[in-house]
Amino acid sequence: MNPLLVKICGQTSQEGARLCATLGANLLGFIFHPGSARFVSPGLPASLKLPGVLKVGVFVEQSVNETAALMRAGRLDLAQLHGGQDRGFCRALGDILGPERIIKVIWPERAANLAGFQAELDEFGPLCGRFLADAGAGGGGHGRGIADAAAKLLAQARFPRPWLLAGGLGPQSIGPALAQFRQGVCPPAGLDLNSGVESAPGIKNETLLREAFAAINAHCAA
């Protein structure tokens, strides 16, 4: 079994989700942000029965109660908070779901220094089960990797929870991205893939997916 967790985000169809699960995805992401080209209703994840695969709802602007309601309607396992939700939001949602079901997104590119970034991790560590580090200074879907200076912060930080690496990851960039953290303090526990394995927004490409998994396997075997 691959030691790295693999999350394929931006699922928009039953067929695409089943393909990703068959190829080895551990987590599937479903985006509930109306502004996204990959926006879906909770009916899609609710209709999927994929043993051993965790279904993740991605939330940006919803309230605590709206997020909890979508989690129930979609029969979702985890909630990914991708809108800069603050400590109070995370605590309130954790009181409903349990903090272990929360993935808190962070943006290392907006950190001024390692001390400030570490303080953010320590602040949210008790309120979530995992972190996800994304490119840019907010939002998602940037289609590029995390900047070098921010990657250095990630490699030096002491994560109180396992974390996933995101940011424009595809077959050609997975190996170099992971290599940055081989000697890091807390290497990533997994990867989050989206646009880098698509032929169009929301349309996962089987060839790119297979190549991505091959790149992950090659890195883990090295």
Rank of each mutant, 00 (worst) to 15 (best):
A155F: 09
F213Q: 05
G57Q: 01
A157W: 01
Q118V: 03
A92T: 13
C90M: 09
E61G: 10
F159E: 07
P45F: 07
L121Q: 00
L48D: 13
A133I: 01
S63Y: 05
A135F: 01
P51V: 06
G88H: 15
D77I: 11
S63H: 05
L191T: 10
L28C: 04
I106E: 13
A149H: 10
A92V: 02
G196M: 14
N65S: 15
I146F: 03
E109W: 04
A21Q: 02
A133W: 10
L27M: 08
A21K: 08
V40M: 01
L54N: 02
K55V: 08
L28E: 00
A147E: 05
A179C: 11
A222S: 15
G175R: 15
N217C: 13
Q183D: 15
Q11Y: 06
R72F: 03
P162F: 01
Q11A: 01
A200P: 01
G202Y: 10
R38T: 10
A157E: 06
G140V: 03
V197A: 08
L178F: 02
G16Q: 13
A222N: 15
G145Q: 05
I31D: 06
A149Y: 02
G202P: 11
F30I: 07
I216G: 01
F89L: 04
V105C: 13
A212R: 03
G184T: 02
E61H: 14
G184H: 09
L81W: 08
G202I: 14
P45W: 12
G10M: 07
R210V: 05
L121K: 07
G10W: 05
P108A: 05
E123G: 10
G140K: 00
W107S: 06
L114R: 02
R182A: 15
N2I: 12
G139S: 04
G74K: 01
V53E: 05
C90I: 00
A112N: 12
F213M: 05
A166L: 08
D134W: 11
F213L: 11
L48C: 13
G145W: 11
C9P: 00
G168N: 10
L165A: 01
P187A: 08
L178E: 06
L208Y: 13
A46F: 07
V60G: 07
R110Y: 08
A112G: 05
G125H: 06
D148M: 10
A155Q: 07
